[in-house]
C-alpha cells in the first residue's frame, strides 16, 4: 500500500489520527494513552497486517520522551512509523509485548536506558546495567563523571 492509501485506511479506522508526511515512511504521532488501541488496530486489521515490529526506540526530547515503533508488514510490504509521546515526570506507557513478542526485549532496553515504565510488561528489569545502577543513561540530563568522556 502506498503512504497515501495507508493514511486513508488508518483515518477511516481511527478518525482523528495525527500524521506527519514528507518522510520516506508515513508517520503517526499519538500519545501514551492511545497507543495500545492504535497498535492493536494496526496489527489486526486485514489489509494493514503490521506483523513485524522491527525497531522500538526511545528518544529523549528534554520536554518529553518519544517511543518510536517502526512497523512493517511481511505480507503487504508497507511500513509505518508510530511515535508515542510519553510524559517525562511520569514516564508510563502500555506494553505491546502481547502484540509482538519481540517488544518484550526491546521494552526492557528502553526501560533500562530511559527509565520508561511499560505497564503490563511480564518482567521489567535492568537488562544491560547492574540491578543497583542509579539513573537512566540515555536521558539527556544524565551525568556520570567516571564513565562519560565528553569531547
Amino acid at each position: 500500500m502506498t503512504n497515501e492509501a495507508l493514511q486513508e485506511t488508518i483515518t477511516a479506522l481511527i478518525p482523528d489520527t495525527q500524521f506527519e508526511t514528507g518522510a520516506e515512511w508515513l508517520t503517526i504521532t499519538t500519545d501514551a494513552v492511545a497507543i495500545k488501541p492504535l497498535l492493536t488496530a494496526l496489527r489486526q486489521t486485514a489489509g494493514l497486517d503490521f506483523d513485524y515490529l522491527f525497531c522500538l526506540s526511545g528518544v529523549d526530547w528534554k520536554t518529553h520522551f518519544n517511543i518510536v515503533y517502526h512497523l512493517s508488514s511481511t505480507t503487504q510490504r508497507h511500513t509505518v512509523v508510530v511515535k508515542a509521546k510519553v510524559n517525562r515526570d511520569n514516564p508510563e506507557i502500555d506494553t505491546v509485548s502481547d502484540i509482538w513478542r519481540t517488544a518484550e526485549f526491546h521494552e526492557l532496553e528502553a526501560y533500562d536506558l530511559f527509565g520508561i515504565i511499560f505497564t503490563g510488561h511480564p518482567g521489567l528489569r535492568r537488562l544491560f546495567l547492574t540491578d543497583d545502577w542509579k539513573g537512566w543513561p540515555l536521558r539527556k540530563d544524565y551525568e556520570d563523571p567516571i564513565n562519560m568522556i565528553k569531547l
Partner: peptide
C-alpha cells in the same frame, strides 16, 4: 540520537 536495531538482539529474544 542514534539507535541501532541490531539483528542479534531481536534474534536472541
Amino acid at each position: 540520537r542514534v539507535k541501532y536495531r541490531s539483528p542479534g538482539f531481536s534474534n536472541l529474544s
